[in-house]
Design a protein around this nucleic acid. Sequence first.
DNA 1: CCTTTTATTTAGATTTACCTAAACTTTATT
DNA 2: AATAAAGTTTAGGTAAATCTAAATAAAAGG
Lengths: 220, 220
Amino acid sequence: MNLSIAEENYIKSIYKLEEEGQEAVSTNALASELDTKPASVTDMAKKLKEKKLIEYEKYQGINLTADGKKAALSIIRRHRLWECFLVDKLAFSWEEVHELAEELEHVRSEKMTNRLSEFLGNPQIDPHGDPIPDAQGKMGKPRAHTPLHKTKAKRLEVVAVSDKSTALLEFLNAKGIRLGTQLDVIERYEFDNSIELKIRNQPAFTISEQVSKNIMVKPI
Amino acid sequence: MNLSIAEENYIKSIYKLEEEGQEAVSTNALASELDTKPASVTDMAKKLKEKKLIEYEKYQGINLTADGKKAALSIIRRHRLWECFLVDKLAFSWEEVHELAEELEHVRSEKMTNRLSEFLGNPQIDPHGDPIPDAQGKMGKPRAHTPLHKTKAKRLEVVAVSDKSTALLEFLNAKGIRLGTQLDVIERYEFDNSIELKIRNQPAFTISEQVSKNIMVKPI
DNA sequence: CCTTTTATTTAGATTTACCTAAACTTTATT
DNA sequence: AATAAAGTTTAGGTAAATCTAAATAAAAGG
Ligand SMILES: [Mn+2]
Ligand SMILES: [Mn+2]
Ligand SMILES: [Mn+2]
Ligand SMILES: [Mn+2]
């Protein structure tokens, strides 16, 4: 099954949207995820169905087949390993690596991927806290996928971020929030669902619901 | 100047053929270097001329402009740095890295390239003995470009190989020839220009002119 | 210098991945 | 249930990078 770069990007996005809970991935959702037009998605859906990577019936949305899932996990493995490489070895910061990994992920070589993993010490999570599928395509469940805005606990540790945009990650940098950061919830404001937080030895600050939705936490 | 992958591969091949001495690079030579058809080369030549990366007049062959040369050196820098990475950090052997670097070279990020170089200790030559252009696009002259079949000296050191095919490199592996290997020329046979060689503590062996043309040496 | 051979270009197709605009389905709202 | 709105697909096009076959130009050989 030899996939083009475009096909790989589609497969990865379908995987992402399925994982986010979409029962069947809609044409519009995919188009907006891939920053393309719905008509283009329909075209590609026909091609991926032909290749048996997705199930697709007109107007019924898209789902990955077992083969499609396998392909997705392999792409995601490469993506996340390269992100680790860029952060751990080339000293990039977490907001810089996603775009680069978006390209590096398309160099397909199992040997290189496995050697890279080994070189990095077989990391289990990438710089945004997402789990890295192993060579067999098995991915550890996200260590916690409770977003900050949905937890009741008062003392929390940041385990992942779900949005990898430079905008969000730079905001978090500015506030001193990174993976492993421990947070105290001072107050939740019902009006706009904003949350007041405190990090030890620092002044408290408030974040919007938009932000808190994208911070994955576990209680400590 | 944003180049497609195809354009980058053309630029790199033109650079290579010019370096090998072609005054003006011919359509056929480029086609065979790129494993494509002459008609496709003509099409691309028009496009690259439009972008001012080459000088080209119908039937007159192709030459890189200053801009074209700059682009070529930047691609070659990335290619060779990735080859170093694969050999030095991921323990690949020299015959495995060219194809992978052929893809990795197209991920364009000056920051990543420079960080990679630094991470590798700013290497000056790649695993095949070719010099690596620096961040400013300056490339050290090949340390020696005397091919074995043209030298008179009896005691030699291997400094580079000019053909990067798996076939040649595996042959050299089998004979114990790598960068830095010291060779004694035992005999030159005029009939077929084959050469009998000896490496210290090993039995002598003979190589064809085909092979000796691709081994770059310096006297010691 | 004329002719044959070789090299190169043009013309016309094809494939992939897009796009816009129009048509059609599904779903939501009165 | 009828209609409006939203979502999706089709039809028809474009641009990039290929290709084959035919035409044309350059080079080589007598
Ligand atoms: Mn990422
Ligand atoms: Mn990608
Ligand atoms: Mn190479
Ligand atoms: Mn390449």
